[in-house]
């Protein structure tokens, strides 16, 4: 028999058991439960339905629900595994697991590839890379002439597109990242090592006796 307190808890739509998610990801059960606290906080911040909508994701990232950003859009789309416009708890945990310090480099490399493969063609195309560079410059209020942007993109392409077919494929991407490991820095969130202390309120609500 569970305690009376736990029976009063209502879960968000599409909730999945922490034990199931822990088995599939780099997180422990306790960490998944801590992530649930974070998930609830974000998913009830604007539209109170227990699902993370784009504007809630933007609010959590930028403290501004109206801030459009190509990179945040891409991350949101990859987290939204079912492609139904919202992030459910299971999607949130599975996606964040890629950013766990203990997750394999290969998984991180593959995720980063998908992030930059804007049109999901299976390649990072020159136009996509240019679009990403322009988005970054715009976001940073920087202006560079088109020539300079082309030069940066061409230079990078010369290094990454080793078979010179005009596109970067997953194998070339992997080789390129191995030579430039700093590119993967954004794929690891040290916070994820210590989420149970980051969200201690979980301790009060825990349903699991550990």
């Amino acid at each position: 028999m569970g305690c009376w307190f736990s029976k009063q808890l209502e879960h968000t739509p599409g909730y999945e058991e922490p034990a199931v998610l822990a088995a599939e990801t780099a997180f422990t059960v306790g960490e998944v439960e801590a992530l649930y606290e974070l998930f609830k906080k974000i998913s009830y911040s604007i539209i109170k339905d227990g699902l993370i909508h784009k504007e809630e994701f933007q609010l959590a990232l930028f403290k501004n629900s109206k801030k459009h950003n190509l990179f945040a859009d891409r991350v949101f789309d990859l987290f939204d595994i079912k492609r139904n416009g919202v992030i459910e708890f299971g999607e949130f945990v599975r996606s964040l697991s890629v950013f766990h310090p203990n997750t394999s480099q290969d998984e991180k490399i593959a995720f980063a590839f998908r992030l930059y493969d804007l049109r999901s063609t299976g390649f990072i195309e020159r136009e996509e890379l240019k679009e990403l560079v322009l988005a970054l410059l715009h976001e940073s209020d920087l202006y560079l002439s088109d020539d300079i942007v082309d030069m940066i993109v061409d230079q990078t392409y010369k290094l990454a597109d080793t078979n010179s077919d005009g596109k970067i494929d997953p194998i070339e991407w992997k080789e390129f990242v191995k030579k430039n490991p700093s590119l993967l820095k954004i794929m690891t969130l040290p916070y994820l090592m210590d989420i149970t202390t980051a969200f201690p309120s979980f301790i009060m609500n825990s349903e699991v006796d550990e």
Partner: peptide, 25 residues
């Protein structure tokens, strides 16, 4: 010359990719 830095290096500085802010209280 910083203008010719690796394009991926450049875009990895985007705020939109810094998921750490999700964890800020």
């Amino acid at each position: 010359r910083p203008a010719l830095m690796n394009a991926f290096e450049l875009i990895s500085t985007s705020q939109g990719l810094n998921l750490g802010t999700l964890f800020e209280k």
